[in-house]
Simulated scan of single mutants.
Amino acid sequence: MAGTAAATSSDVAVRKKNRNRSPFYQGWKRFKKHRLAVVGLAWVVLFFIAGIIGPWVAPYDYRIGDFLAINQGPSWTHIFGTDNVGHDMFSQILYSIRSALIVAVGATLVSFVIGVVLGLWAGLRGGLADAIIMRGVDFMMTLPGFLFALILVVLLGRGYWSLILAIGIPGWAGYARLVRSLVLGMRNGEMVEAARALGASQAHIARRYMLPNVTGSMAVSLAFGIPGDLAQIAGLSIFGMGLQPPIPSFGNMLAQAGDNILGFPWLLYFPAGIFAITLLAFLFVADGLQEAFNPKGGH
Results as ranks from 00 to 15, higher is better:
residue 12 V to R: 14
residue 17 K to S: 13
residue 19 R to E: 11
residue 23 P to Y: 01
residue 25 Y to H: 06
residue 26 Q to D: 08
residue 27 G to K: 03
residue 30 R to V: 06
residue 34 H to K: 14
residue 45 V to N: 09
residue 54 G to R: 07
residue 66 D to R: 09
residue 72 Q to I: 07
residue 73 G to S: 13
residue 79 I to M: 10
residue 84 N to V: 04
residue 84 N to Q: 14
residue 89 M to H: 02
residue 92 Q to H: 13
residue 95 Y to S: 08
residue 99 S to M: 07
residue 101 L to D: 00
residue 102 I to Q: 03
residue 104 A to I: 02
residue 106 G to H: 11
residue 108 T to I: 10
residue 111 S to A: 14
residue 118 L to N: 01
residue 122 A to V: 01
residue 125 R to G: 01
residue 128 L to P: 05
residue 128 L to R: 15
residue 129 A to E: 12
residue 140 M to G: 00
residue 146 F to A: 00
residue 147 L to V: 11
residue 150 L to H: 04
residue 154 V to W: 12
residue 156 L to K: 10
residue 157 G to D: 07
residue 164 I to M: 03
residue 168 G to E: 04
residue 188 N to D: 12
residue 189 G to F: 04
residue 196 R to Q: 09
residue 201 S to M: 06
residue 213 N to P: 07
residue 236 L to R: 02
residue 237 S to W: 02
residue 243 L to H: 06
residue 249 S to V: 06
residue 252 N to W: 08
residue 255 A to F: 03
residue 257 A to G: 14
residue 259 D to M: 15
residue 262 L to E: 12
residue 262 L to F: 10
residue 269 Y to R: 10
residue 270 F to Q: 03
residue 271 P to W: 07
residue 273 G to K: 02
residue 274 I to Q: 04
residue 274 I to N: 05
residue 281 A to V: 01
residue 281 A to K: 04
residue 287 D to Y: 10
residue 294 N to T: 06
